[in-house]
Design a protein around this nucleic acid. Sequence first.
DNA 1: TTAAATGTAGCACATATGTTCTATTTTTGC
DNA 2: GCAAAAATAGAACATATGTGCTACATTTAA
Lengths: 208, 208
Amino acid sequence: MINLNEKQKNILKFIENYYIEYGISPSIREIQNGCNITSTSVVDYNLKSLQKKGYLNKRSDISRAIKLNKDTQSNNKIPILSNIAAGEPLMVNPDQTSFNEDTDPYVELPNHISSDPDLFALKVKGDSMIDALITNDDIVIMKSSNNASDGEMIAAWLPKDEETTLKRFYFTGDKVELRPENPKYDSLFLDPKEVVIKGKVVGVIRKV
Amino acid sequence: MINLNEKQKNILKFIENYYIEYGISPSIREIQNGCNITSTSVVDYNLKSLQKKGYLNKRSDISRAIKLNKDTQSNNKIPILSNIAAGEPLMVNPDQTSFNEDTDPYVELPNHISSDPDLFALKVKGDSMIDALITNDDIVIMKSSNNASDGEMIAAWLPKDEETTLKRFYFTGDKVELRPENPKYDSLFLDPKEVVIKGKVVGVIRKV
DNA sequence: TTAAATGTAGCACATATGTTCTATTTTTGC
DNA sequence: GCAAAAATAGAACATATGTGCTACATTTAA
């Protein structure tokens, strides 16, 4: 997103949002109205500039034939919010909420997993879930949730240690058990106040 | 794809192929030419019919605003060619080559795995690769290949047993070793002639 | 067989839409 | 401050494109 003035950023954003809503690109005049631009020729001027800079491509004389380049768009991508500790602790930013597609990593979801909102992804570091067939560098797809049932695999934020960890969740009366799936590691028994559940694992993707 | 005559199937196919090639929908006249239809009104007529039957949607008076419904399109899908035996043998069809999206199962690939041609998918049955973190009902993404190097995880067709199997490949002089990743099972040592390598594992997808 | 339903043809029309042109204004670089 | 470059305006133009209309052909159903 470098080398772009506000107007051009607006145009790109508008095209992307329009595409998300309608599945096709807007016409020049729709861009004009949507971005409060005074003339179609100004839109044309900026589209040519954006094309020259490599942000989009368009076919001449063809209606609605603007295509954002792959780097420009953020379709179907879900953010890899932070690496997750599944062994050694890892510092993460607990209040990371926004997703900047330019600087943040992401994965593209296979559609049979996706179609669900509030999904995010975590890249696993460590081997504490090896018996659950999840290992280092796997990407786990999470569904946001602030609660869990016994036996569910969850990502939990531990304020005291300032780490996010992937474990099985058990609630035994007054203590929360976070159980790894690796005999090398022991369960954590914590006060419920010490555990912030971030989400449940709904899928795993591994690139070998 | 029921309730459709040849012309309408053609139109749907053309729209999909056009979309794959250009990223946008074709105009009425492009459909006309692409499907050898004699009049734009015939295209219009059939598009209305297809819309009524639920195969697509379009916005009125908007250029290139045809959208195939999700069931109608086959974007990004790769076929699950057959279940793979990773324990008990499973009968499969060794010369299955074509992919009929209507009747055959498929997976949608996450883009960071995809973009490579000749990929296909296999659904794992059994637990013989459990130590490689691949288990029952996982979907392995395969890249077609008729050869392999030592230690690579491959799918091999065993003509003698008429089964496809997922194993690690080792070549020890004159015998091919197909090694499971589960102490419960033993390696197969076979004559090279008895092993047809179908592809190498490039990814794993699991829906939990 | 016959009437209704369905599909085809060809053309015309309205407008949606990309492009171009010239003039003017604003910004930039020196 | 001044010339060049960049950006804006507004309109006109050409054509790309969806739709409508009438006539005709083919298929279906009774």
